[in-house]
Design a protein around this nucleic acid. Structure first.
Length: 304
RNA sequence: GGUGCCAUAGCUCAGUCGGUAGAGCAACGGACUGAAAAUCCGUGUGUCCCUGGUUCAAUUCCAGGUGGCACCA
């Protein structure tokens, strides 16, 4: 039987966690989380990590496994998750991956270009230049160093400009020369199961989940993290809005409403990304039996 | 009961000296390869409260009605 990774994906709040537990129990396997924020052990309430009881029922990987102090990115996830999968597949044929971090999913399925990790000091100095000189000088520099990328990059997107410059400066090569779009082969089959539901229902679930987070003490969690607010990992829905409230720019109630709105926006953005992926088979969260049937059917086909 | 003010997008409101209207937020769509819950781009979705009058033409002016708010009783 070929090794198969079943990926359960969908917008935030749709019900991936609960279903992933059911599916993992049914196939008696473990879960790889694919969530760029649940990976941090210092963040709990605001990232909606599964509760400890759930985590004990089914072994989870990449949940609360890293620190917000560590620099992390999609490429690291690709490397680490592939290693972990190799270990897991030694003992089992099926592993579940669940989460909504789009780039992380794609990184694991198709791989990223072979680039050096960004030097954080260089990043800091470029960010400072962007602040003091404005983006125009950096754009000119990029046009010099990598005219090809300059032609295709979104010139209004500072992060894209900065990253391209970082790579040019670090390697002495144009950033575009690294962009080969590898689409690597993986030593296992992949089945993508998408979860979605009626938009109004989804928004309701998201809004209620935010209220629940506040009941569970989100404000206190964020207050404790306030001194670390500059960390990238804390540039996150549910955290930055409360940072703003601590700064006194908005009321706590406004922060709560903004968290809801930004979560809804995030869900929409996820759907936009997933929509263009033709490999996804879509279900609603209640279709547990149909999903298991689809997986079994897929496994049988692959087995022949 | 009387007087005054208000009624325009899902919400808060602007505006049209009479030629069927626009901001913010929300909503909706898109991009995306090492910061991705990040970052960036795009879209106005409307019985202008109702009925009548004046007018070539009324969301706009006039009258009445309805609803809301305030004050006086």
């Amino acid at each position: 039987m070929p090794k198969t990774l079943i990926i359960l994906l969908g917008p935030t709040g749709v019900g991936k966690t609960d279903l992933s537990i059911d599916i993992a129990s049914y196939f008696q396997t473990e879960i790889i989380s694919c969530d760029s924020r649940q990976i941090y052990r210092e963040m709990n309430i605001g990232t909606a990590v599964p509760d400890t009881k759930t985590l004990k029922t089914i072994p989870h990987h990449f949940i609360r496994s890293h620190s917000i102090h560590d620099y992390y990115n999609a490429s690291k996830f690709e490397t680490e998750a592939l290693e972990r999968l190799e270990q897991l597949f030694r003992q089992r044929d099926i592993v579940i991956m669940t989460g909504g971090s789009m780039l992380y999913i794609d990184a694991l399925c198709k791989g990223l270009d072979d680039l050096p990790n960004v030097d954080q000091q260089l990043r800091q100095s470029l960010m400072k230049r962007m602040e003091t000189e404005g983006i125009a000088n950096l754009l000119n520099e990029l046009r010099e160093l990598d005219p090809d990328y300059y032609k295709v990059v979104d010139l209004k997107n500072p992060k894209r400009i900065l990253h391209a410059l970082e790579i040019c400066l670090m390697t002495g090569r144009p950033f575009s020369s690294f962009r080969t779009n590898p689409s690597r082969k993986r030593p296992f089959k992949i089945l993508k199961i998408g979860l979605n539901c009626d938009r109004a229902v989804l928004y309701n679930r998201i809004n209620q989940r935010v209220d629940k987070m506040f009941e569970e003490g989100l404000e206190e969690e964020v207050i404790n993290l306030y001194p670390l607010r500059h960390l990238n990992s804390l540039n996150t829905v549910g955290y930055r809005e409360i940072f703003d409230h601590i700064d006194g720019t908005i009321t706590l109630d406004e922060a709560r409403e903004k968290i809801k709105a930004n979560s809804r926006k995030y869900a929409r953005k996820q759907l936009t990304w997933f929509r263009r992926d033709p490999e996804i088979t879509w279900f609603t969260p209640g279709m547990k039996d149909e999903i298991i049937a689809t997986i079994n059917q897929h496994l049988n086909q692959e087995g022949q």
